[in-house]
């Protein structure tokens, strides 16, 4: 049986939550997502990432829920959602549950949902002050291409300009989107110098577990992780440093 989710009200809306976070219906199309100016101010990186998916035609249809539940290690909207510690709301015949987004992907094409369950919404936390989140991917074509590697980075700066919090999630270099926890740990508490960011990016490359396939070799993917992670970190630090947040 085929169920069309695009007509279930709560799954098709984007609303601000009381805690100033966001609740994005799992069936909201990327096209609709991009039209939400407030969301784009809070999480421009998420919109940017989602707008990498396929082409405008694909974005008229593609949803965050689908991007997640597709279970692709290359899913472009997923690493950033993991790095900003989004949660997902799941509805099933036994009621609703809320899980950390990171626990969802389990293998290529597989997510931790039971057959009676539906992903209803993605919940984004409120954006912290002096924080930023960006996703960069690499593809040979500008569009209509699948990430050879990607890196979704979230950074929060402390009062002294040190990195108070960092998350790095990598795309296309493991069976599921992969947290680069060692690289994250290297950053915490440190001043974000160019050398540090580059070092952390190299650590992330070391954490990647890429394979070689028709799109790229494992070595090249690893190289790209270092480049993309460093560039994403640079961008996040710059953005977070100039305020990076609305009150």
């Amino acid at each position: 049986m085929i169920v069309d989710l695009k007509h279930i009200g709560e799954m098709c809306s984007v609303v601000r939550t009381p805690d100033k976070g966001w609740r994005i219906g799992a069936a909201v199309s990327v096209r609709q997502l991009g039209a939400n100016g407030d969301l784009a101010r809070d999480y421009p990186g998420l919109i940017e990432a989602a707008q990498l998916i396929g082409s405008l035609q694909v974005q008229s249809r593609a949803t965050l829920g689908g991007n997640l539940c597709n279970g692709a290690p290359s899913a472009d909207a997923v690493p950033l959602m993991m790095s900003i510690e989004a949660r997902v709301e799941i509805a099933g015949t036994r009621g609703r549950r809320m899980v950390n987004i990171e626990s969802l992907p389990v293998a290529p094409g597989k997510v931790a949902l039971t057959p009676d369950e539906l992903l209803v919404a993605v919940l984004l936390p409120p954006r912290p002050a002096r924080s930023a989140a960006r996703y960069l991917r690499f593809t040979p074509r500008r569009e209509m291409d699948i990430a050879i590697a990607g890196s979704g980075v979230a950074v929060r700066l402390g009062a002294a300009g040190e990195i108070a919090h960092a998350r790095i999630t990598l795309a296309s270099v493991a069976p599921v989107p992969l947290r680069a926890t060692k690289a994250e740990a290297r950053l915490i508490g440190e001043r974000p110098t160019a050398a540090l960011l580059a070092e952390a990016a190299r650590i992330a490359a070391g954490e990647a577990k890429p394979i070689s396939d028709t799109r790229a070799s494992a070595d090249y993917r690893r190289e790209l992780v270092a480049v993309l992670t460093r560039r994403a970190l640079d961008a996040c630090v710059a953005e977070a440093g100039v305020g990076g947040s609305k009150p």
């Binding site: 085929i2 069309d4 695009k6 199309s29 405008l56 035609q57 694909v58 008229s60 249809r61």
Partner: peptide, 13 residues
């Protein structure tokens, strides 16, 4: 009004 690839849309939709 939104562009879609008709090959990716089910007729039922």
């Amino acid at each position: 009004g939104a562009p879609v690839c008709a090959c990716l849309v089910l007729a039922g939709e």
